[in-house]
């Protein structure tokens, strides 16, 4: 036990100074969602498989749809990335920053060709 103590005394601290220092995240870390709107066809598969209701598709017609993303509900499980047949939605290894306003986070990922703005 004494040896462990002396080892620890002369080794560097493990602490990560998180908000003030850098955080190293591995390559495959499932962080913030990245979206490529051009690839999205509005098929809704990601919405069907999302276990946390984090995605919502509002569809008027085949061409006219909105895809909403709610980061506060997201479980960062990666299911949408796996499900999407065209690779439109994926995780990056960026840290998701904390916030005090979960409602203000909702992101409109994609609107259809007719730019209807129904949802505020």
């Amino acid at each position: 036990m004494l040896r462990a103590l002396i080892d620890a005394l002369f080794s560097k601290a493990d602490t990560v100074q998180y908000p003030y220092g850098p955080v190293s995240l591995p390559e495959g870390f499932r962080g913030a969602i990245e979206f490529i709107p051009e690839r999205c066809t509005g098929c809704g598969l990601c919405v069907r498989d999302c276990p946390a209701n984090g995605l919502e598709l509002i569809r008027e017609s085949r061409e006219d749809f909105q895809l909403w993303y709610y980061p506060a509900r997201c479980a960062y499980c990666g299911q949408c990335q796996l499900t999407c047949p065209r690779g439109a939605i994926s995780h990056t290894n960026d840290m998701v920053l904390p916030t005090t306003d979960p409602e203000g986070l909702a992101v409109l990922l994609k609107t259809g060709h007719k730019n209807s703005n129904k949802k505020q």
Binding site: P26, E27, A75, G78
Partner: peptide
């Protein structure tokens, strides 16, 4: 985390 992308989940 490096293998799967999540530390706990």
């Amino acid at each position: 985390e490096a293998l799967s992308g999540g530390r706990v989940s």
